[in-house]
């Protein structure tokens, strides 16, 4: 069964400056939203390395560089691009704009409240990362 889409109104688009990120708390989760000029991307605001605030990082194309130790996160799929071969990834959240207000699709928040989802590479298509169901330790 698929979860129905849940769009949450977040903030006026101009509150997130061009090529910067801002953090927002939604239902106990901190999410980093980035303004890439023609669209917005959202991921967990927690670097899988040491929990650094990704919203404070420098944006490079569609990646962000964590301000603490320069891990690089792909904002489109949530995977780590630096260091290479890091099999951890963050949740990403769809966004859309409605009359100048940014909306976030938050069904992923309910699915898993863990910040990090361990991923594995699928042998047939190495670029795609797929989540492995997290076992017992879910909070």
């Amino acid at each position: 069964m698929t979860t129905p889409k849940q769009w949450i109104r977040i903030t006026a688009c101009e509150n997130i400056p061009l090529r910067e990120g801002r953090a927002v708390k939604v239902g106990g989760n901190e999410i980093a939203i980035f303004n890439l000029g023609d669209h917005f991307l959202a991921v967990d605001n927690r670097c899988p390395h040491n929990g650094g605030p990704l919203a404070d990082g420098i944006v490079s194309g569609t990646t962000v560089v964590c301000p603490l130790h320069a891990w690089k996160i792909d904002l489109e799929c949530g995977s780590v691009t630096k260091p290479a071969n890091t099999a951890v990834c963050l949740r990403t959240f769809p966004t859309r704009i409605d009359e100048g207000v940014l909306l976030l699709e938050a069904s992923a928040l309910e699915k898993r409240s863990e910040e990090e989802i361990v991923c594995r590479r699928v042998a047939t298509s190495p670029a795609v990362l797929q989540p492995i169901p997290e076992p017992a330790n879910q909070v």
Partner: peptide, 10 residues
């Protein structure tokens, strides 16, 4: 820090 316009999941 940005406060969301809506806080709870609908």
């Amino acid at each position: 820090q940005i406060e969301p316009l809506e806080t709870t999941l609908v």
